[in-house]
């Protein structure tokens, strides 16, 4: 029912063309958002090399799951993709991340503009407690100093909450504080918040790890709906989740040294006939 609601709204990518592209399964076409390419990514914390030589392509309109045991560098990797990595003191980086063929680490790049195009949802729901639900959705607009007319703000709030699958639960109390919601609702509010600035790519760092199964299911539905109009990269420890929501899966592993990508491919292939023995061991639950 949310989809029919969404269809009434006009979003930047015409929904009809997105739906067509999606139904004809043509990842890589423009209506499905922008692709992201990571080239030879290395990441350090101080002298410690945490991530070694990771190159991954994320085609537009696809959902890619990053799986692997704790400490294998998945989170570090996803944080290099929108330059959140550099907030950690002593963090260092090598490699390139290309968004629409432009290096987001290039000199002269305004990092705040990059983060508007590559949104992020964190492990722990983190709505702004001093703001109401509606203000939380619009917080990115304010933070990035984008000006949109007052008349469009209400529509944007509604549109984002519908797309995040939260509208029906909060439409009568948009003035309530964000902290008054349950954990799962807060996380969907955070998703709605990141949608409001119209990102082309959405990074999700274990978005369901703090949530109960019901909320997890709602968020997975949300991801499926969103993937019709943007590129999504999700870190997850839950292999069922990876299998349910993603088109592609990348398996990360660290053998005590830096994390590396062991195998990447279509999700069905990773889970049914992986090429690497270590992948097979992990996805079949023999370790990790």
């Amino acid at each position: 029912m949310e989809t029919s609601d969404t269809a009434k709204k006009t979003t930047p990518n015409s929904l009809a063309s997105v739906a067509t592209a999606r139904s004809q399964k043509k990842p890589g076409t423009a209506p499905l958002g922008s692709g992201l390419e990571a080239r030879k990514i290395h990441a350090w914390f101080g002298k410690h090399l945490a991530l070694k030589d990771v190159s991954l392509d994320f085609s537009s309109g696809t959902v890619t799951a990053l799986i692997g045991p704790s400490g294998c560098g998945k989170s570090t990797f996803i944080r290099t993709l929108n330059r959140m990595h550099e907030f950690i003191p002593s963090a260092a980086f090598a490699g390139e991340v290309l968004l629409d063929n432009e290096d987001i680490y290039g000199s002269g790049v305004d990092v705040t503009k990059i983060r508007l195009q590559i949104g992020m949802v964190f492990q722990k729901p983190n709505p702004f407690p001093s703001m109401s639900i509606g203000e939380n959705v619009l917080s990115g607009i304010k933070l990035a100093q984008l000006n949109i007319p007052k008349s469009e703000q209400n529509d944007l709030v509604e549109d984002c909450l519908i797309r995040a699958g939260l509208w029906s639960e909060v439409k009568d109390r948009l003035d309530a504080h964000g902290g008054s919601l349950s954990g799962g609702q807060q996380q969907r509010l955070c998703i709605a918040r990141s949608l409001a600035v119209k990102p082309k790519v959405l990074l999700m760092d274990e978005p369901c790890s703090a949530l109960d199964p019901g909320s997890t299911l709602r968020i997975e539905e949300t991801i499926s709906q969103l993937s019709s109009s943007m590129t999504i990269i999700i870190v997850t420890h839950n292999m069922q989740q990876a299998a349910r929501v993603s088109d592609y899966t990348a398996f990360f592993l660290s053998d005590g040294g830096p994390g590396e990508v062991i195998e990447v491919g279509p999700t069905s292939q990773i889970f049914t006939k992986p090429r690497d023995q270590r992948t097979e061991n992990y996805v079949s639950g023999r370790f990790g």
Binding site: M84, F87, L116, M120, F122, N126, G140, L143, R193, V197
Partner: peptide
């Protein structure tokens, strides 16, 4: 971090 990730 949430604020920064929203382009602040």
């Amino acid at each position: 971090q949430a604020a920064y990730s929203l382009g602040a």
